[in-house]
Design a protein around this nucleic acid. Structure first.
Length: 279
DNA sequence: AAACAGGCCTAAA
DNA sequence: TTTAGGCCTGTT
């Protein structure tokens, strides 16, 4: 991979296995949106940016400093996804799913944002999750100007912790409101240290996260995979449960996918939702 | 109109 | 240890 300033953009060359649409729309993140030209505009890590692909290069709006300090890690650009994808093709079904999802990368998202977002995701569809999160950011995030428009960062746990249940009414997020308030107050108060969890074991993180009201196995594992970036974690939701039972039966152990079970999960999820049905 | 959405919690077998 | 119902809200 090589990168260099090219006008207002950073041009990135030599990156394989990076499909913008699949990566942003496979359900792991909620704040990236396609424009008419196929570029994606998003807000993450306190920054707004645009990324597009043209020819063999990617072009990201921003400084070289931000690219090296934030985006290179955020897009997980130093990992060999092609090799991982090939290793995950352990049978016919996985060959189909991985082929269909080739180019998905697991983003290294902000931990608190992942925690809050996946609490809001429960029993909700993606358009509404995105709508709720945008409202949350507009109300309590910090404004950032980008290309003449105002965007809003994801609010800090501290900022959210100082709100009341009534303050969250405009979100229309229903019974999830007290869940995100409790999470915000626990994180802001230092009782849940997401940085420390990311340095420990996934099992310990699971236990700690599930102590919060409104967080069960599914949400906790999504936080561990997408927020703590522990790529061997395999969240099981209704889509995954259905796909697994149809293709592998009841006694299935995701550890067969090894250290990158989380990427296998994304391939299966994306394929089950958008691709064909079971073989 | 009733059922369902990328769950979770509680109560009851 | 497993199962059923309820939960906010919005869409089909």
């Amino acid at each position: 991979m090589q990168c260099f300033q090219n006008g207002s953009e950073i041009e990135i060359t030599g990156v394989a296995e990076f499909d913008l649409a699949r990566t942003f729309e496979c359900g792991q993140c909620f704040r990236w949106n396609a424009d008419a030209g196929g570029a994606y505009v998003g807000v993450a890590m306190g920054r707004a940016t645009r990324i597009r692909k043209d020819g063999g290069s990617f072009y990201l709006v921003g400084t070289l400093e931000d690219f090296e300090g934030i985006w290179r890690s955020y897009f997980d650009l130093d990992r060999d996804y092609k090799a991982i994808r090939c290793a995950l093709c352990i049978d016919d079904y996985m060959m189909e799913a991985a082929k269909y999802g080739a180019g998905i990368r697991i983003l290294r998202q902000d931990k608190w944002e992942a925690l809050c977002s996946f609490i809001l995701s429960q029993c909700n569809n993606i358009p509404r999750i995105k709508q709720i999160i945008e409202m949350l950011c507009r109300l309590y995030g910090e404004p950032v100007e980008f290309e003449g428009l105002t965007y809003y960062t994801f609010p800090s746990a501290e900022k959210l912790a100082s709100q009341s249940a009534e303050d969250l009414m405009p979100l229309r997020c229903g019974y999830r409101a007290p869940y995100i308030l409790e999470a915000a107050r626990t994180v802001a108060g230092g009782l849940l240290d997401l940085e420390a969890l990311s340095a420990g074991k996934a099992g310990d993180a699971l236990t700690a996260l599930k102590e919060l009201n409104g967080i069960g196995d599914k949400v906790a594992n999504c936080v561990i995979l997408f927020g703590l970036h522990m790529l061997d974690t395999f969240p099981v939701d209704t889509w995954i449960r259905k796909a697994i039972s149809e293709n592998y039966g009841k006694s299935f152990d995701p550890s067969v996918f090894g250290a990158y079970a989380g990427l296998a999960q994304q391939y299966i999820f994306h394929y089950a939702r958008n691709g064909k049905k079971a073989v």
